[in-house]
């Protein structure tokens, strides 16, 4: 893993300001996705901006939707009764998101399953060579952000000849 600077944002303004000031900066949430990719040198940010201290509330909007704070974890989002009642597909996607990779990714709430993973599970396996966004693209901004890079091909069955 390449060395990086670590900054902790206390509010939205700081998070946005820090990202504008630093090149090759990445927002850091729970890290289960980003840290793994950094360890493999797939992601090489120069600066990590920790956004876990940002708003962790889910609030009603005037238009009748929900505003999800950047500090809301995916498991908290899936557990929210408003999400469960009004957006069951989102709740289900979050809860089962990592199941397409259950052999290598735990399905429990230990891992914040990302919509990146959810999009894998909703794509036919044989065509899932890269990840396509299933929601608005907001790279690394929120718990349901979409990462814009491709992921390695899902493991496919390989026949190994007996020697």
């Amino acid at each position: 893993m390449r060395a990086f600077d670590y900054l902790r944002a206390d509010d939205r303004g700081q998070a946005i300001g820090a990202a504008a000031e630093h090149t090759a900066a990445r927002y850091l949430g729970g890290g289960t996705n980003l840290v793994d990719l950094m360890r493999e040198n797939i992601e090489q940010p120069a600066t990590l901006i920790d956004v876990t201290a940002l708003a962790s509330e889910i609030t009603e909007t005037d238009e009748g939707g929900l505003l999800i704070g950047a500090g809301v974890t995916n498991s908290a989002l899936a557990a929210d009764q408003r999400v469960r009642r009004r957006y069951p597909m989102l709740a289900r996607a979050l809860l089962t998101g990592a199941s397409a990779r259950s052999a290598t990714w735990p399905r429990s709430a230990v891992m914040c399953c990302s919509v990146r993973a959810a999009s894998i599970s909703m794509t036919p396996r044989h065509t899932a060579t890269s990840v396509r966004p299933v929601a608005a693209v907001m790279p690394s901004r929120a718990s349901i952000a979409i990462t814009p890079f491709s992921v390695p091909r899902l493991p496919v069955w390989q026949y190994i000849r007996p020697t």
């Binding site: 670590y6 729970g30 289960t32 793994d36 360890r39 990590l48 876990t52 709430a109 230990v110 891992m111």
Partner: peptide, 25 residues
């Protein structure tokens, strides 16, 4: 790499994989 769960610890009562958590956070 977050696959096996052997490193699970509790942070303020919630379980996380310590291997993918940066200590600084």
């Amino acid at each position: 790499q977050g696959a096996c769960g052997a490193c699970t610890v509790l942070v303020d009562g919630e379980r996380i994989n310590a291997c993918l958590a940066l200590a600084v956070q």
